[in-house]
Simulated scan of single mutants.
Amino acid sequence: MFDYGGMKTGAARAWDAVDASASSRADVLAELSGRIRSMQRSTLGAGSEAPVVPVASELGGLFPRGGLKPGGVYEVLSPLLATMLLSAATRRGDWVAVVGMPDFSAAAAMAAGVDFERLIVVPHPGDQGMRVSAALADVMSVVVLGDAATVSAGEAQRLEARLRRTGSVMLRLGEWPGAEDRLAISERRWSGLRAGHGHLAACRITATARGRSGIPRRVSFTLSEMSDPPGLIEHSDE
């Protein structure tokens, strides 16, 4: 188990060595591939047989089928939304992965209900972000790829084909041509302050999904009992 900020994840280690020397990158990727072969993908179905990936009830209205489309890629402009989209999948027993997000918030993940026993974190993939993500997509239900990773058109097409075959879902923190939807937080309203003093106790959030039709879908929900609001509600305006 990897101790991530005092919390245990399902990863044996954080795979930081991926951005070391070329030889160590190859070793780590080989180890990663071997370690994940025995995970749950064979029990969930693949490709067209894969079930819709469930999402938190607060976000279900953003998706026509009530969850993430197997084989789809989604642009997600909010780390908070990306984290929330992992929670229901892990509670179902799916494995999920976060790649190239060194500032991934363990506190936000815990607050969102992510099961750390079903989470693999690869905070520093170096220039191997796409390769690591592709390897993980073979067995993970959801893979989150940070915005620092560069993606060529050819790499995007190959990964999309791989996702369609496996039924996995990619959440890209940044742009991805041809994404199923563009997910963002369009509005935030804080409560708890009175006459200029007090504590921020809750935040009313409006999240938006805008797909190829251009017609946005919106949901609103409240996050409450937040001990560290600025760290949980990050930059994400549409």
Rank of each mutant, 00 (worst) to 15 (best):
H124L: 15
A108K: 02
A97M: 13
A106M: 13
V114A: 04
P123T: 10
I120W: 10
R118D: 00
D103H: 11
P125W: 04
G113L: 03
P102L: 09
I120S: 02
V98A: 08
L119W: 12
R118W: 02
E117L: 06
V122I: 15
V121F: 11
D127G: 15
A112E: 01
V98W: 07
H124T: 14
R118N: 08
M101L: 15
A112C: 12
D115Q: 08
V114K: 05
G126N: 02
P102V: 09
A111E: 12
M110G: 00
V114T: 06
F116A: 10
L119Q: 09
A107E: 14
F116D: 03
A109F: 08
D103E: 14
H124G: 07
G113E: 00
D115A: 11
P102A: 09
V98I: 12
A109T: 07
A111T: 04
R118Y: 07
V99Q: 04
G113I: 02
E117F: 00
P102S: 08
M110P: 00
A109N: 07
A97N: 11
M110T: 07
S105D: 13
A112D: 02
P102R: 08
F104L: 14
A106W: 11
D103C: 02
A111G: 02
V114N: 05
V121L: 14
V114W: 04
V121R: 07
F104E: 12
A112Y: 02
S105Y: 11
R118T: 01
H124I: 07
G100V: 06
R118G: 00
A112G: 02
A112R: 01
A106V: 14
